[in-house]
């Protein structure tokens, strides 16, 4: 099993810092290195506010975005995700975790020679949909996948 008796899920959340986020507003405002860092988007706490801050208006679900990730996270604190866009003129790929206190995790602006294929690793506090948001020709498209975060243990 495994039966994570210790630390508990709460302990795990505390460990990753997401519990704190869940119960308190983001009070820390990072010192801007570049003016371009989208403070409003990274601090937003609802999907609607996040999209608004990113300038996204009702994105289209697209089968031309491939979101690769394990069905069950090996470690909620380190969850590999990869998005591949087959939509022509893709210029931006972002990752959002629906049930994280702040959904927007990372946004990648890709140059003309860069393939629309990005891999990174995100933190997840609980089982959630992860969304790949693609910008192409000024329009937004999404693909999503549920990734399960489990306590672990108890295996065969």
């Amino acid at each position: 099993m495994t039966l994570e008796l210790q630390p508990s899920r709460r302990g795990f959340l505390r460990q990753t810092g997401l519990l704190g986020l869940a119960v308190s507003a983001v009070t820390f405002l990072p010192r801007m290195a570049y003016a371009s860092w989208n403070k409003a988007a990274f601090g937003a706490k609802t999907m609607a506010d996040t999209y608004k801050a990113m300038g996204v208006d009702s994105p289209t679900v697209s089968a031309d975005i491939q979101l690769n990730a394990a069905d069950i996270a090996e470690n909620g604190a380190v969850v590999p995700v990869e998005a591949i866009s087959k939509i022509p003129n893709t210029t931006q790929i972002s990752f959002l975790v629906e049930k994280n206190p702040a959904m927007l995790t990372a946004q990648f602006d890709i140059g003309p020679d860069t393939l629309p294929q990005i891999s990174t690793r995100v933190k997840m506090g609980q089982t959630s949909n992860v969304i790949a948001l693609v910008k192409a020709d000024g329009k937004f498209y999404t693909a999503s996948k549920e990734i399960k975060v489990t306590l672990g243990g108890c295996g065969g």
Binding site: G17, L18, V97, T105, Q107, D109, L115, I118, T120, R121
Partner: peptide, 28 residues
């Protein structure tokens, strides 16, 4: 950058995992 050319720019929030990983492909 590939040589002197910027090929990717990213903005990250606090839920990118510790010791971050980045993978991408660029033509040329």
């Amino acid at each position: 950058k590939l040589n002197d050319k910027v090929v990717l720019q990213a903005q990250w929030g606090q839920s990118v995992a510790k010791n971050p990983y980045l993978g991408f492909k660029v033509k040329g």
